[in-house]
Computed example of a mutant assay.
Amino acid sequence: MMIKQNILLLITVVTLLTACNSENKKEIDVKSIKIEGVRLDNTKLWQTNIETTQGIKKMQQIMHSFSDRKNVAAYATLKNELETEFTTIFQKCTMKGEAHNQLHNYLKPMMPIFEGLESGNLEICKANFKTMEKHLAGYANYFK
């Protein structure tokens, strides 16, 4: 009888740990991310300038290192850090033609997400955080 209880306890603990672990470490399926208004160069990725890609990667790093997810004020700080990189991308943009247009189609939807990050409502902040995380991950589906 004691062995059955121990096995049941072990199964319960493993199940709970697995569920908690997968809850905290959900991976974004990057290939499935579609950004409305952005298209490929036929079937190829658009070539960007290095500063743009570095800026997006910096924004992804900022998002990844953000840990104060229960503090509304922290989201406003996050927004400011992201907007600084966003502005730098625009300032250093040397792209021309359709690649430039598609990059702008990619970047424009971030503006309302920034606003949501400083909404003052924790649930809205969290939702916009997830939206931004997904949007940034989608960069690799259109640009190189």
Results as ranks from 00 to 15, higher is better:
30 V>T: 12
44 K>E: 15
31 K>N: 09
134 K>P: 01
57 K>T: 15
104 H>F: 08
58 K>F: 07
84 T>R: 08
141 N>W: 03
118 E>S: 15
14 V>S: 11
30 V>K: 12
59 M>C: 03
58 K>L: 12
66 F>I: 03
14 V>R: 02
129 F>R: 06
67 S>P: 00
26 K>L: 10
43 T>G: 11
96 K>F: 10
103 L>W: 00
112 P>R: 07
141 N>E: 03
81 E>G: 03
106 Y>C: 02
83 E>F: 09
86 F>W: 11
136 L>T: 02
134 K>M: 15
34 K>E: 14
20 C>F: 13
87 T>K: 14
113 I>K: 05
5 Q>W: 13
85 E>K: 04
22 S>P: 01
36 E>G: 00
29 D>H: 05
70 K>L: 11
109 P>T: 02
33 I>L: 07
76 A>N: 12
3 I>Q: 14
97 G>I: 11
4 K>F: 11
62 I>W: 08
47 Q>G: 05
82 L>R: 00
95 M>N: 03
106 Y>G: 00
68 D>S: 15
66 F>L: 05
5 Q>H: 12
71 N>T: 10
73 A>Y: 07
97 G>Q: 08
6 N>Y: 08
21 N>F: 15
43 T>C: 00
130 K>W: 00
139 Y>V: 01
126 K>Q: 14
92 K>C: 05
22 S>F: 09
129 F>V: 02
110 M>Q: 04
78 L>V: 04
69 R>F: 11
28 I>G: 05
25 K>R: 15
72 V>R: 07
2 M>W: 08
104 H>S: 09
81 E>Y: 03
11 I>Y: 01
24 N>K: 12
62 I>L: 11
29 D>L: 10
54 Q>N: 13
60 Q>H: 04
111 M>G: 01
126 K>F: 04
102 Q>M: 07
41 D>C: 06
56 I>C: 00
9 L>W: 08
143 F>L: 09
115 E>W: 02
115 E>G: 10
50 I>Y: 08
116 G>S: 05
85 E>T: 09
4 K>L: 14
7 I>P: 01
34 K>I: 15
111 M>P: 01
141 N>S: 06
71 N>G: 08
79 K>Y: 00
51 E>W: 05
99 A>H: 03
39 R>K: 15
134 K>F: 02
7 I>M: 14
58 K>S: 14
73 A>V: 13
24 N>G: 06
122 L>F: 04
56 I>D: 00
45 L>W: 07
59 M>P: 01
86 F>G: 00
14 V>M: 14
73 A>E: 15
36 E>I: 08
39 R>H: 12
100 H>F: 12
88 T>L: 12
127 A>E: 13
71 N>W: 05
90 F>H: 13
34 K>R: 11
36 E>M: 10
143 F>K: 02
115 E>R: 09
101 N>M: 10
44 K>G: 05
13 V>A: 09
60 Q>K: 14
85 E>A: 13
76 A>Q: 14
38 V>W: 03
32 S>W: 08
111 M>S: 10
63 M>A: 01
40 L>C: 05
123 E>K: 12
133 E>V: 01
137 A>R: 00
57 K>Y: 13
11 I>F: 11
36 E>H: 06
76 A>T: 15
16 L>N: 10
12 T>S: 13
114 F>V: 02
144 K>Y: 08
68 D>N: 14
97 G>T: 12
